[in-house]
Design a protein around this nucleic acid. Sequence first.
DNA 1: GTTTAAGTTAAACACTTGTTTAATTTTGTT
DNA 2: AACAAAATTAAACAAGTGTTTAACTTAAAC
Lengths: 210, 210
Amino acid sequence: MALKTDFNDKQIQILEVAETLFAEKGFDGTSIRNISKVAKINIAMISYYFGSKERLLESLIVYRTSDLKYQLDNLLQEDLEPIEKINKLIELYINRINSNRGIYRILHFEFTSKKREQNLQAFSELKKGNLKSLESIIEEGQKKGVFRKDVIIPLITPTILGTFFHFHMNKPFFENLLNLKTEDLYNNYIKTNLTKHIQQTIKALLIYES
Amino acid sequence: MALKTDFNDKQIQILEVAETLFAEKGFDGTSIRNISKVAKINIAMISYYFGSKERLLESLIVYRTSDLKYQLDNLLQEDLEPIEKINKLIELYINRINSNRGIYRILHFEFTSKKREQNLQAFSELKKGNLKSLESIIEEGQKKGVFRKDVIIPLITPTILGTFFHFHMNKPFFENLLNLKTEDLYNNYIKTNLTKHIQQTIKALLIYES
DNA sequence: GTTTAAGTTAAACACTTGTTTAATTTTGTT
DNA sequence: AACAAAATTAAACAAGTGTTTAACTTAAAC
């Protein structure tokens, strides 16, 4: 069975249950019986539709990461000051990852070990594209003389995304520390304070002269 | 069997094999038969010494994270400018995590989900202590008037550690992108460029006035 | 040297794993 | 209504899971 990019209703139902469970308990921590029980389908349907558990994961990645590039390209062509573009890019990243936590958690967890390196190709292309977009914004700012020139551009993405992920992966700790008792409060903190912190950090890094 | 803090040679042998395998393939992806085979001991020895696979993980955390607090306290009492203390703290963090990648990868991966929240207590105390240390350095700098006052201190740790983790978890990607063909080149890049990037970022954040 | 405890072993336990089979039901087409 | 393709099912498969057992060996204590 070849890797498809369009899925029927039942397949989508399976994919979304798998997304939740993989994100919650990891790929190895989730059994196909577990998935089929929650999705209320027979175990055999997963092999029938996707071929195997591994292929189910691959399909899930395809299903969720296909339109990010489009959103980024749109941002690039907007008529904004470089720093405003950076701020918008950060907002786009955080918003997108935050409302697709499941899949990004899975990407973060499952696609780092050598074990699944074969499936890593498409993911790697996505990251390269994202980096190119960031590069073009920063180089524009450097030409205009508003950004310093001694920053290491490929390390800026780790700072943006890493800050978010580290915050989110220590969710129970920060919920407790910052008194974010409800899911709404937590989400709101991300959308305002955390996003602002990251924007403030990157802005300082790009503009400050020591 | 109570949770011990001192281990005999055979236990340490098991713990270190477990560390490697958990880091490589995750907790669920590693079987006790796998561990016992690599450690060249009988399967039953793991239950005999640690009680269960879960308790083995707990023991591993205890075994590896017991002396970080001591190192931090030492740094606090050194006679340095606040910004120098911050730089040293960043260096300490990165160095320590980088030379204990296994356990930190495990902490990062296994202790985030609700699933193992019970074992999270000791880890949470460690993080609170670390935050207190960072807070005291920054407040010192603010009193001296060299650090701005509108930074959100608890979000600085995510930026420091998150940047490192995100970089390291995308190791294959950055090895390729930055031409870090050998393990030595990779480690060297972390010790110099990545550490400098993080120091530069945090410095800019703490000092830059918009 | 005997007794007690600690260490070590292979085998068995009950249970879960991902995948496949073959039979049955549903759906769509003529 | 008859046929073929697709969807769905329960059951079986072999292999792997964490843990426990009971027998055995080694080491320590008296």
